[in-house]
Nucleic acid binder design. Structure first.
Lengths: 222, 222, 222, 222
DNA sequence: CATGAATGAGATTTCATTCAT
DNA sequence: AATGAATGAAATCTCATTCAT
């Protein structure tokens, strides 16, 4: 089952095959070390065809980044429950995030490790995505403050810092949870893993966020 | 008659000059895009001399990683107050971490972005360093639990997750606080910035850690 | 309902369209730099069709050269008054030459610059055309000698040299007069320009030719 | 005698060897068809060394054009007798021109055929050289007019046309005389050939120039 | 201690050309 | 009559690395 080598495939399909191959290759080798030869071979086509459709290594990499970025944002967006309370929204968003990164480790690797490391044009694309996510978290923190009656003030920079910390923590957990994958039935395992990981982060951070919106602060001697 | 170009410099000194140049170049260009030509020129020596002392591009990069890793670990280690309570130790360690990464942005960029992106041998070196730090944080969480009387149980995997989240949050904050550097007198500013950033993270996480050691957990329904 | 893109065009017409596109492209880009892609697009057809009709880039270029060569020779031939005296024939031939090269600059560029520059097969085609023209001029010089009573002897090699000089002068003037085109009504302008340019060359050379057929020679000391 | 393969040669020497090889290769193959591989092999070095010294194919070609241009201009300049009468200056300049192009056919081919055919930057370099020579001839025609008492007027454009015709005739003769090279002792042959060729052109043109400065013109009816 | 001279191997990219429909 | 899909071969250029001095 499955043709050994599919020939004369429509352009749109071939392009996706190429992007698939490119994601795998860029994730494993890095942008510079991945050669167009290797990508073409992984896609099952000749190098000139890759150039005919994607124009250059740069454009290919950009196309990959854009596709993976859109997929990740879509996954998280689809996961959040828009009208739920702030903590519930954060929780469902995190679950979506961890589930997607677990299911698409190569895409996540390209976004998180490769794209940020190889020059402005690519880094900017990812920075924009990260900014989107940071803003989402920032808004949730604001909403949480409102829900809590907001006894104390939360300076803008303070909120921004908290959001960046949250996002960084999530990124780190995604990597850790992917690399320390246990055994067990796959689908099940991943699902529960995404849930557990999201819970870990909620446990760590939610109480602190609540205290801050109440105007309390940690202090060295405290 | 000061020599315009210092010749006949002792080996140890030359090596450090080369490593300095290499850190800068690797940080700015990335591992693959940084050429030995550029590094040699930045170091003010000829290429064969770089090879005589550091043997190959791989070994040069490894030497850079090792030096920067040692410097970062030393900075954090020197910053913590060994016999203080757990929160105080974490706090001082974070201050040390943020101060060092702010003062050595190129070294941090090499460790955080380049080394993890370019293949196993280098990534392992950084993973080891990260493991050191994660373990340090893990121990602190354990100590905090003990100090708190430890009503509930903290599963190992749970603690590990918390530690990874803390480290990821710290990394993200380091990057954010470096790139959003404000104005003001420099030395002063950086110091206070490291303090603020550390406080942000303590505020976010310490309360949650405390609740967990008390056996409480966040749950979707509030 | 005029078709936006004419399809099902008879072969002969399509071939001329392709040759038109090829002349333009070869003239502007040069033989090597002109790609079959570009030519096919300029002709408004697909690449395989160009191959179906013209077989290969070499054959396409050859076809172009042959067509332009024939057109130029036809224009000059049509311009000369066969039974007029030698100087009159030369004069009208030159007018025809300058008028044609001015009206078909791309064709002239291909013949004069590209075809001679890119290897034997093409250069030979143009060399043959040039030989035709040189022979025509050679014959005219012979005729002029006869008309003049031919006091002196004109060695064959001497005549050949004169003919080559005339042709080279004409080629140079064609280029110069095309590139230094003035203003004024176009058709008129070109015509008069061809006439002026022909007159310039007649003025320069005819007296000398007459002297030579009279057996006189220029000598260093005057 | 003659090392089979000279190694470790100083840069200046190697560069000339490379330029020598490049002139030959560009002349025979044309700019595009000449590969850097071929040039490097003809120079007896590896390709990277060519790039190290000459940077790119474009720059290599430019260097070739500049060197050959300077050599040709120097040869002609050295040949003319500055204080002689106009016809004598023209005569000696032509001799120098024909002698140089005969001795350096590849250089001449690069300047005359290749450089003008492959894009603006190169064509401009040769156009500038040609303009130098045309101006020299223009001045000589002006001087001749003065010497002759200059009964009639010579319009600027008329003079320019004459100069361009002269230069074109010389170029054509150079090519013809090179390609129709007879047998016989080499050095001798070439010398006499340059002289003969120069004489041919003087015979053709000098009388006409004289008539024009006297105000006479050729007219169709004779 | 230090370097100018040199190269093997491999990267990206382009192009003329064909096949299947 | 006409084309979208596909490729083998070769071009320019770069880089880590070594020798001879």
């Amino acid at each position: 089952m499955g043709a050994v080598k599919s020939k004369r495939v429509p352009r749109a399909v071939r392009e996706q095959q190429m992007l698939d191959a490119a994601v795998r290759t860029f994730a494993r080798r890095g942008y510079r070390a991945a050669s167009m030869d290797e990508i073409a071979e992984a896609a099952g086509v000749s190098k000139p065809l890759v150039y005919l459709y994607l124009n250059s290594k740069d454009e290919l990499f950009t196309a990959v980044i854009r596709r993976e970025r859109a997929a990740l944002v879509a996954a998280v967006t689809a996961a959040v429950e828009p009208d739920a309370p702030a903590d519930r929204q954060l929780w469902s968003g995190l679950k979506g995030f961890f589930a997607h990164t677990a299911e698409h480790p190569d895409g996540w690797a390209v976004l998180h490790q490769q794209a940020r490391t190889h020059g402005e044009p690519f880094a900017l694309e990812v920075a924009a995505m990260r900014a989107e996510i940071v803003e989402f978290v920032t808004d949730l923190i604001g909403a949480a403050a409102k829900e809590a009656g907001c006894a104390g003030e939360l300076a803008d920079r303070e909120v921004a810092g908290l959001a960046h910390a949250m996002v960084g923590a999530a990124e780190s957990l995604a990597e850790w949870s992917n690399s320390s994958e246990g055994e067990g039935a796959y689908g099940e395992r991943e699902h529960s893993s995404a849930k557990d990981t999201a819970a870990t982060l909620m446990n760590l951070a939610w109480a602190g966020l609540g205290r801050m919106t109440d105007g309390e602060r940690w202090a060295p001697g405290g």
